[in-house]
Design a protein around this nucleic acid. Structure first.
Lengths: 151, 151
DNA sequence: GGAATTTAGTTACATTTGCAACTAAATTGT
DNA sequence: ACAATTTAGTTGCAAATGTAACTAAATTCC
């Protein structure tokens, strides 16, 4: 077997991705948990709701890449904490519109800058073009994995 | 708040990483599970043992980036399936040396090419320099996250 | 208009995970 | 040499997760 087609875990892309993702999320997650008592999923919901007035859970699953059960649980917890409110959807009785409460909004206003500082800290030492490149490559990879999964 | 320091989840790096990693591992994991009955962790252990004669569990945790509990469980399952064997370590009574059995070796010989084909399929459409760049950026990011986590 | 199907969201259950506590052996320090 | 600490690995238990089954509303299609 030629050397360059040998399997070496440390150079195996899905492995590298997984390690990179786990390390960064673990670090970031600890901080949200410690400072705000938010899980990663709760935080994602807040992040998306913070940038949009009112959304259905369906729209949330689409823009957070979480599945509907995960969204449902995160939303329930946030409602219990008074950070999110649910309003009946007038034209579709199955779904409801979700929005941040004033309390939720103020958590968002606090969390968002922290999140951005985290990102900046992670990317300290990366050039802007490298960051663009990384994001671009990741998006292409996601798209590719999505396509492949459809078989 | 200026537009370019606004939090947008879809451009948030830890999020992108998480989505990219989850999609690729999910795809890859399904295949290992379906074709070989191996979890991702079992597969990692096999991959590393396939490239090294005999290792301690400790060495496995280091080179798989899994924690020791995860390694312990994966190894146990592999031993139960007869793919890995444990030999007493002569000089250190706490640990044992792990190695693939002949059956384990033949699973490795089957799985490794499949893994490489998966990777190639994912990276179809990427130029070699892009792949190098991606790996490099991921490694730097991992290192950075590791440093940051140490506080 | 009404049965059949699809879609939104929740609940229930089994599996996985992650952390802490534990056992046992090795190492360190005196 | 022997108590105290560290290291290797396992086990137990609580919490997180994923899958499938479910309820209820909307849509499709005769």
């Amino acid at each position: 077997m030629p050397a360059d087609v040998t399997l070496r875990l440390e150079a195996y892309l899905p492995y590298r991705l997984s390690v990179a993702s786990n390390r960064t999320s673990r670090w970031v997650a600890r901080s949200y948990e410690a400072r705000f008592g938010l899980s990663i999923w709760q935080w994602r919901v807040i992040a998306v709701l913070g940038g949009a007035d009112r959304l259905t859970a369906q729209a949330l699953t689409a823009s957070t890449a979480m599945d509907k059960v995960t969204v449902s649980r995160a939303v329930r917890a946030l409602i219990e904490r008074g950070l999110v409110e649910r309003k009946k959807h007038q034209s579709d009785g199955r779904s409801a519109l979700l929005a941040l409460t004033p309390a939720g909004r103020s958590v968002y206003d606090e969390v968002a800058p922290v999140a951005l500082r985290h990102e900046a800290a992670l990317l300290d030492g990366f050039r802007p073009d490298e960051i663009r490149q990384l994001t671009d490559l990741l998006l292409r990879l996601e798209k590719r994995a999505e396509e492949l999964a459809e078989d």
